[in-house]
Amino acid sequence: MRDNQQLHTVHRIRDRLAQCLIYSAVFLVGAVFIWILADLARGGIMHLSWEFITESPRDAGRAGGIASILISTLLILCVALIAAVPLAWSTAILLVECMPAASSFGKTVRFSLHVLAGVPSIVFGLFGNAFFSIYLGLGFSILSGGLTLACMLLPILTSTAEAGLRAVPDTYRLSASALGMTRTATLIHLILPAAAPALAAGLLLGIGRALAETAALLFTSGYVERMPGSLLDSGRALALHIFDLSMNVPGGDMPAYASALVLVTLLLCINILAMKLAYGLQRWRIMT
């Protein structure tokens, strides 16, 4: 009886100890992350103004704004999405709608995407430099940067689209088949509209990933900070601008803070929107 009681006390103490450790770890993580965000906000907000967004950088970025850099970023993003989205979404459609889940082709595609998702971004940068910039002769340009990013985005776009399409209930497909609709019609009129929020959420996640990327763009889209005249001009992405200001430009800390704040705010908005789409979707599905 005594032993039992003792054991009970030991367990109670152990429980309390575990709980304390877990709560303090969570508190630590939360505090550090709030510290980071507060630091960025405090450092950036002083330098941030309307002129900062609408002017081009002067004096290696110490003065002026980030307008041309935002334009380059947008162009790189557009190139990446235009190249990656058709490939990724058709792959996802093929895997879900036209293949049995265990087919060997499907397995190969899934495996290669799984590997691709793990490739470090600097390795994409090396590949982009060797293939797009030199072998295809695109040089340091927005086009080669965007295409390199497109390769990086393939896995995330495909896997989110695949999950979204698989979540469309099979009854839809059966009903369409019973009505004598062709596969193409079923896909266009039924499946894609039903999966649209999931596809949009995946697209937003991809955009977030692309905006955050630095290492892959270092040797593909280049460093030039002026306004790009065409897709074959070199253009500096926002993330790369932060890197350059903080590492290579003495006295570039204030604009770097402000650029980081712009980038983080953009990414937070995009990710919150993506989450809203994804969670809203779940709720809708539970209700019906």
């Binding site: 058709s90 792959t91 093929l94 393939l154």
Partner: peptide
């Protein structure tokens, strides 16, 4: 029907490209 076959053929071409990206990266490295 023919449209469906066309669709699947197009999708297949795109999907093969997705696999080729990984091979291309390995090949160029």
């Amino acid at each position: 029907i023919p449209t469906d076959r066309l669709l699947i053929a197009i999708l297949r071409i795109f999907a093969v490209n997705t696999v080729l990206v990984l091979l291309l990266i390995l090949a160029f490295l």
